[in-house]
Design a binder for these strands. Structure first.
Lengths: 210, 210
DNA sequence: GCTATGTTGTAACAAATGTTACAGAGGAAA
DNA sequence: TTTCCTCTGTAACATTTGTTACAACATAGC
């Protein structure tokens, strides 16, 4: 049963048993397959996704269709930006895409405010989520503000390794270029450079981190 | 009395009278003069600053001393990142500097969690603050990811005009360059360009937006 | 096998940004 | 006034990033 992992996760958060019951009662499971969209920019969410299995990729996009990778959401993490979107009833300013096949637990927003008032553990969870998302955004800002593209690319590869737990990255140069908001040629050039420095090995549709 | 403005501000937030009393009781006023630091990176805050008068400039810095402007905090706004820092007891990851002479109301963190549980209006205030800060960070990210330096500079000038309410900006090219994390020469070049395009006029230590 | 399509490598060039150096203008203080 | 310091303008050049074009290769499907 998927719920076993969910319950363990909720326990590890220090959630009260009553809260866990409520979460199990009002929430619902959702499976999303690799590449499909969980939150689309401009949409209004009415549920908060909590990641049970897999990884969600959170990206920001501008009007011209350019986009930039922000961070990954992994097991046990909730989408903090969805929370404010829901509470404020605003349109989402970003997209979340399943980086792998995922299992999510969707929590309807109606319950949130009451839980925040009622359960100290949930309050702590929400604020910790905010803190973590703030930190991730600041890290993303650091990359863009202070690093050149070669460093950003290498950091991107290491982050991806961290998130997936695998030394192999199955992406094309084109895909990576989109996520870093640059062009494919630039990525090919810099990957070749990283390969010459002995930091990676390249194959078709695959990069291996050494 | 400064408190008149503070009380009006709190009322406008929709705060309950009891909450306003508590805020007035446990908080304290703080005056900071232009250019002085309110939050230093690496420090641990135990109070949340609420801006009554003036503008705080929030910047992010890296280890080499480079820095980048994130956003302004104006009257009625609180520093959301301080809130999580306080609740999590973490070191601040950013700095806040008085862009003009400021009057702040410092709220000790000890009260926060209780208020969040007790007052719906305060809960709303905190979440709205988060939402606004998220939005500002995302706007900062948009600038860095999607805009070239000439656009970023012009946007910077317009933002500054917006925050100060004045068409005159009293900064040197050097100061602007620091906030955009580029070099003085680049800023001089691009300002000259904006001047030629008829968007600004330049004087010593002063830029006028047309 | 062949073809269509997507992926990667590379060259040549363009544009944006960063760096160094120096000259002159303006203001403050002696 | 003279001196000193900061600010601004500009040239010349280096580096980084973006763009276009094309060749070579791999794979899937026929």
């Amino acid at each position: 049963m998927e719920n076993t992992k969910l319950v363990t996760m909720l326990h590890n958060q220090g959630f009260e048993n009553n809260l866990i019951d409520e979460i199990l009662t009002v929430g619902r499971p959702k499976k999303v397959s690799k590449g499909s969209s969980v939150i689309a920019p401009g949409s209004k969410a009415s549920e908060i996704p909590l990641v049970i299995n897999g990884t969600l990729k959170v990206m920001r996009q501008d009007k011209d269709g350019s986009e930039i990778f922000l961070y990954y959401l992994e097991g046990g993490e909730a989408c903090a930006m969805s929370i404010t979107c829901c509470l404020e009833n605003k349109k989402s300013q970003f997209s979340a895409i399943a980086e792998e096949d995922c299992v999510l637990w969707m929590i309807p927003m109606g319950s949130l405010d009451a839980w925040i008032a009622k359960y100290p553990s949930f309050r702590k969870f929400v604020f910790t989520s905010y803190q973590n998302r703030f930190d991730e955004l600041l890290v993303a800002i650091d990359s863009m503000a202070f690093m050149k593209m070669d460093q950003r690319l290498y950091k991107y590869l290491l982050d991806k390794k961290q998130a997936s737990g695998s030394f192999e990255i199955h992406k094309t140069h084109e895909q990576i270029a989109r996520e870093l908001n640059t062009s494919r040629v630039v990525i090919s050039r810099l990957l070749k450079q990283l390969e010459n420095e002995g930091k990676i090995e390249q194959y078709r549709n695959k990069i291996e981190i050494l």
